[in-house]
Amino acid sequence: MRWGAFFSVMVIVALIILYEWPKMKQNPKKDKMAFFTLLFIGLVLSMFDLPHMGGPTAWIQSLFRPFGRFMEK
């Protein structure tokens, strides 16, 4: 867990909510849900040690390994 990154993301998320919320009062409920869900995903992901964690990039990379080997020659 990297607290520095987590707290800075938390501050940014708070700022985004403060900035965006007054403007989206009129928007449908679905918009608000999507807005908060995406922010929440960002916040959760920022808790991990991302550079050394497996994720979509690493999965695709291992899927395309034969091609990678072909390109290394």
Binding site: V13, A34, F35, L38, L50, P51, M53, P56
Partner: peptide, 19 residues
């Protein structure tokens, strides 16, 4: 409304699995 939240995701993806 979702532009800012996607920005955070972009920053996260710029580090993810790329040490």
């Amino acid at each position: 409304p979702i532009v800012w939240s996607l920005g955070i995701l972009l920053v996260i993806f710029s580090f993810w699995s790329l040490p």
